[in-house]
Computed example of a mutant assay.
Amino acid sequence: MIGYTYMLRCSDGTFYVGSTRDLDTRVATHAQGLGSAYTSCRLPIQLVWWAEFDRIDEAFALEKRMQGWSHAKRFAFTQGGYDAIKGWSARERALRKPHRPSE
């Protein structure tokens, strides 16, 4: 069974990530304000990225991974795809790591 992972840009500039078996119907449902509580109060929405998978569990796994990304990482991804976020996780860890002056 085919599955899709998708990313929507909401009217407030945030990104929503989901997965589905029927992309066109799901995006239309979001656009009508019925897709999720998150997107229903952030209309209009725009489909900014999607990927097709052979199996829905693969789409769901990517959805869960992308949901853990920061807004900045999602934005970078929409601008340049996977190349734009290559090594991003290492950078994020480095930025969160407290700076300790040398003794």
Rank of each mutant, 00 (worst) to 15 (best):
C10A: 12
R91E: 12
S40L: 00
E92T: 06
S70V: 06
R55L: 05
D83A: 15
K73F: 02
D22G: 01
K97S: 03
A51Q: 15
K97E: 10
R93N: 10
Y82P: 08
Q32M: 10
D12R: 14
E92Q: 14
E92F: 05
T29D: 10
A94E: 13
D57F: 09
F77S: 09
C41N: 12
D24N: 11
K73M: 09
S11N: 15
D24E: 15
G18Y: 02
F53Y: 15
D22I: 07
M7K: 08
S102H: 11
D24R: 12
Q32A: 14
I56E: 11
I45C: 08
K64E: 07
T5E: 07
P98T: 05
V27A: 00
L95T: 09
G80R: 13
D12H: 14
P44R: 11
S40M: 07
S19P: 05
Q67W: 02
T5S: 09
R93M: 05
Y16L: 03
Y38P: 00
M7V: 12
K73W: 04
A94G: 06
Y82E: 15
R21I: 00
G18C: 02
V27L: 03
L62K: 08
F77C: 09
T25I: 11
R96L: 12
D83T: 14
G3K: 05
H30Y: 04
P98I: 00
A72V: 08
C41H: 14
L8F: 06
E103L: 14
A28L: 05
Y6N: 04
W88S: 12
I85F: 08
D12E: 11
C41A: 11
K86Q: 14
S36V: 06
E52T: 12
L95G: 09
D12Q: 13
D57L: 02
D12Y: 14
D83I: 12
Q79V: 04
D22Q: 13
A28K: 13
M7W: 04
G13P: 08
C10P: 08
T20Y: 00
V27C: 02
Q67F: 00
K64P: 01
G3H: 06
L8T: 06
K86S: 12
K97H: 03
E58D: 15
T25P: 00
G3E: 01
A51F: 07
A84K: 12
M7N: 05
R96G: 06
K97W: 03
D57Q: 10
V48M: 06
S102M: 12
